Simulated assay, not measured.
Amino acid sequence: MIHTTVSGEKPDIPATMQASVLMKQGVIDVQERPVPTCAHDEVLVRVASVGVCGSDAHYYREGRIGSFVVESPIVLGHEASGLIVAVGGGVSPDRVGQRVSIEPQRPDPTSDESRRGVYNLCPHMEFYATPPIDGALCEYVTIQSSFAHKVSDAISDDAAALFEPLSVGIASARKAAITGGSSVLIAGAGPVGLVTAQVARAFGATEVIVSDIAEGRRANALRFGATQAIDPAAEDVRALRVDSFVDASGAPRAVVDGIHAVAPAGRVVLVGMGGDEYALPVSVIQNRELLLTGVFRYANTWPTALSLVRSGAIDLDSMVTARFALPDVEKALNADREPGSIKAVVTLTPTQEELS
């Protein structure tokens, strides 16, 4: 059974929808597909906004990320928000009409990892836009009801979609043990580096140093939480002494230099997608007793994201530098190559301004 009513009104749910499909490396096609139906524990969401992630662009340009290979057509996009328009038989019909931010994953609740609370590491994970699972660059998607997080009307559709990269920043700050008075070095001033800088300040860090070789990106870092922005090609990063280091660049030199900058008993958190293997300064890690870890997505971050955005501690709307319609997804995937780009968003639901 699927519930589709709220306040006596039946949402207008068509039989088919438009979907932007990556047919193969470098080829995007807009197709008509059936609107998905809800399983017992799912909700159907009419998609409003979808943020474009670097992984989406990577699948488009390279056709793979590590062991994840695009072998058949796939819908990209995992940063999404929207409106619940239908629910499965096991979900309260009161949820119809709620605006939501989508946590784009479906772990196996019986796996050891899920039972330990680290469901992001579930080996049976189904994650939006990770082959072969379709993502959100389409008009409707389904998601388990517990992963459709209600947001208030004070939060925009774009910001609700960007709870996903914000969650990476929250997971990184937690791993780095950032707290009041902390000092942190963040390598890379792309979207993840910028949200991590904002989270670090919100968590109480008093020194947030962001390194990036691009002048424009350093300027962005100062707008979004950094107390200092440095050029690693011109300054000696290794001479710094910080409590923690978060790499959001994936650049081997940035990782090695950042490790050298961490004070004894500090933490190193690897977030950026770089080479599969490269040399690390093992003696520095050993002699300073540094804790080195990685971040793979996130778990239990959406409530924190909601609180931070609602309080005004995090500004996601200002990070959106370009918006595109569904037929222009290819342009959205290449927007990161434009000067001044931070985050591109694909808009599927018209705004009130567009409707008026």
Rank of each mutant, 00 (worst) to 15 (best):
E9F: 01
Y140A: 02
N120Q: 14
L137D: 03
G188T: 09
D108E: 11
I342Y: 15
A159P: 01
L83I: 15
Y119Q: 02
L185A: 10
R33Y: 12
P131C: 12
A86R: 02
G89P: 12
R174C: 09
A226Q: 04
S20A: 15
L44P: 03
S211I: 09
C138K: 03
Q18M: 13
R218L: 04
S145K: 00
A214V: 13
A148Y: 03
P165S: 00
G266L: 01
C122W: 05
L292C: 13
Q198Y: 06
E42A: 02
V151H: 00
C138W: 00
I209V: 15
D231T: 06
H149M: 06
I213E: 02
P264Y: 13
V87H: 07
D153E: 10
T130V: 15
H78Q: 09
R115K: 15
R61I: 08
Y119I: 08
E71D: 12
E139P: 03
H78M: 08
R64P: 02
H58C: 12
G275W: 12
R217A: 10
A261W: 06
T142P: 06
E71H: 08
A57M: 04
S167F: 05
R223W: 04
L333I: 08
A176K: 01
L355I: 15
V52R: 05
P36E: 14
S341Q: 15
T293H: 12
E9R: 14
V45A: 03
Q105W: 06
S67G: 01
M125I: 15
S244Q: 00
A15H: 10
A313V: 00
Q144D: 10
A214R: 08
P123G: 07
E289N: 13
V47G: 02
I259G: 01
E42V: 02
D212P: 01
I230H: 00
I314M: 10
I314F: 06
V30G: 07
L308R: 12
S307W: 11
A129I: 06
S356E: 04
L270S: 05
Y278N: 01
A86M: 13
V52K: 03
D41E: 15
P264M: 07
